[in-house]
Design a protein around this nucleic acid. Structure first.
Lengths: 255, 255
DNA sequence: ATTGGTTTTGCTGTTTTATGCAGGTTTGTA
DNA sequence: TACAAACCTGCATAAAACAGCAAAACCAAT
C-alpha cells in the first residue's frame, strides 16, 4: 500500500475515509504505517471521525458506515409490546457462554433486539432476519446453519440444515411458535419448518417456547412435539394467569 | 520552489490561490519562506481568503475547496454510480437457470439490487447482506452456506462453509474484490475471506471479478489467485481504457 | 518636504493545537 | 488464565494561532 506522508490533519482524515470507501474497513496499524504517524494520532483521528458520524470505530480500526447500514426496521411488529415482555423473560434464561438455538419469527427477533450488550453467548440459527439481529450485537458469536432458503419464512431448510443441527449440543432452544394446545402440543403449518423445529428440540438440553397469548389453545395441521418435550412456556401473561393453568398442570414451567 | 519577494498584499493572495490551484494544499511555513514575509502575514492572508470563502484554512496551512469536494462530498454518491455500472455488466453474464456463487461486499450488494425481476436462477452465498438482497427477489432460489459468521465481513466462514462450497458445481462465481494487480493477482487482507474465495473459484466454471477502478493495481497481504484463474474482470471503466490494457494482455476478458 | 491618518507588517508574549510518549487498563484470544 | 495488542489518560513539547502593540510604509493634502 502506498505511503503517503506529511499530511495535514484534515488530509489524513480524508485519506482515512477514502480508504474506508475502498475497503469498507481500515486497521489502525495499517494507517499509521502508511501515513507515518503514531498509532495515537490515527486513533484520535478515528475517534473524531466517529464522533462526527463518518465511520464506526471498532477495536483495532474502523468500519465504513455504508457497509454496516443495517436496514433495521423495527416497524410495526404485530403486538410489539407483548413481545417485548416475552423477550425479557426469555433473556432471563440465557446465561453466559451458553449455546442457544433459535428459530425465526418476530418474537425471536424482538428478543434478539433486547439482548443485553454485555451478554456473551453463541447463537445458532437458520433464520436470516435473526442472523441480522445477532450480528449487530457486540459480543455474541453467530453461527448460521445453511442450506436452501425458504423465502416465505426466511429460514434455511433442507437436509443439510437438519444434519448440521443434529451435530449441535445446545443448552437452550428458543422457539417462536404459531400454535400451542394442551392436547395437540406444538403445531405448525409448514412441513419444512416443522422438520427444522423437531431437529432443534432434539439438539438442545432445554426447550423454551415463546408465544403471545392469542396462540394458546390453537393448533395447526402438522405436529412439532408434545407438551412433555418442552421445558418452558413464555407468554406476555402473568404466570398465574388462568389461561396458563392447564399448561402448568401438564408439567410445563410457565414464566 | 521559486522565491517571489516584495509582493503587494493582493499579489500575495493571488499567488496563494494559484499555488492552491496547483497542489490543492499550501503550508504556512512554505509560503512565508517563498514570499519572504512573516508567518503572521501569511496567516492573515489565509484568514482573509478563508473569510471570503476562497479556501479552507486548517492548522498549518490551507486546503483548496476542490479538495473538500473530492474527498468528502462526492465520494459516496460517486462510487455508488460506479457500482451500478459494474452491476449491470455483471448481470449481463447471468443466464436463466444458472447456479451463481457470490461473495459479499458492497459491489455484489449493488448487483443484487439490480437483478432484473424476471430472472430465474439460483444464487449461493455466505454473505448475510447478500442473502437479504436475494430473498427480496421474486424468482431466484437462494442457498445459504452456513457456519460461523464473521461479523466484520458479514459472511459465514469456517470448515463447513468451505466443505459445502466444494460440493457445488456452479456456472458462475461473482467476486467483489479488494485489490487486483497484474503481477500479484487477486489479493485480500482477511485470511478467512481468502480461503472462502479460493473455494468459490474452484467450485465455479467461470470466475468474474468485480472491482471499481480504484482497486486496480493495488494489492494486499494474502493471495487469492493469479490472473490466469479469472475469466472476466468488470470495472466501471470502458473496456478499452488504458488502465485495463495490462489485464487484457494477461488473458482476462474485460467488460 | 512635512504632516496626520490609515494600512500593513512584524514582533512579543500568551494561548491553543497537534502529536508523541510513558504508564496503567482493557480487550481479545489462545 | 496468561499474554499481546489495542486502548485510554495525562503529560511534555513544539508548532501554530492569536491578541495587542508599535514601527514601517503608504497616501493624501498641505
Amino acid at each position: 500500500m502506498a505511503k503517503i506522508n506529511n499530511l495535514l490533519k484534515r488530509e489524513r482524515q480524508a485519506y482515512i475515509l477514502y480508504r474506508l470507501d475502498l475497503h469498507n474497513r481500515v486497521l489502525n496499524a495499517n494507517l499509521c504505517e502508511d501515513m507515518e504517524v503514531s498509532e495515537d494520532t490515527v486513533r484520535r483521528d478515528l475517534q473524531e471521525l466517529a464522533n462526527a458520524g463518518k465511520l464506526i470505530k471498532v477495536h483495532g480500526g474502523a468500519l465504513s458506515l455504508a457497509f454496516s447500514e443495517v436496514h433495521f426496521r423495527s416497524r410495526n411488529i404485530y403486538s410489539q409490546g407483548q413481545k417485548a415482555i416475552i423477550a425479557e423473560k426469555a433473556i432471563s434464561l440465557i446465561q453466559t457462554d451458553m449455546y442457544v438455538l433459535t428459530s425465526g419469527g418476530t418474537t425471536i427477533l424482538e428478543m434478539a433486539r433486547h439482548l443485553p450488550p454485555q451478554l456473551r453467548a453463541t447463537f445458532i440459527t437458520g433464520s436470516i432476519p435473526a442472523l441480522n439481529a445477532y450480528m449487530a450485537h457486540p459480543h455474541i458469536n453467530v453461527i448460521a446453519v445453511g442450506d436452501r432458503v425458504n423465502k416465505e419464512s426466511k429460514i434455511t431448510v433442507g437436509a443439510s440444515t437438519l444434519e448440521k443441527i443434529k451435530e449441535v449440543n445446545a443448552d437452550l432452544c428458543l422457539l417462536g411458535i404459531n400454535a400451542i394446545d394442551v392436547q395437540k402440543g406444538i403445531t405448525d403449518s409448514d412441513w419444512e419448518v416443522v422438520e427444522l423445529k423437531k431437529a432443534m428440540i432434539a439438539a438442545a438440553a432445554k426447550t423454551v417456547c415463546l408465544a403471545i397469548a392469542e396462540k394458546l389453545n390453537s393448533f395447526e395441521a402438522l405436529k412439532v412435539c408434545g407438551l412433555t418435550e418442552i421445558d418452558y412456556l413464555i407468554t406476555e401473561l402473568d404466570p398465574t394467569d388462568k389461561l396458563l393453568e392447564p399448561y402448568v398442570k401438564a408439567g410445563v414451567t410457565v414464566l
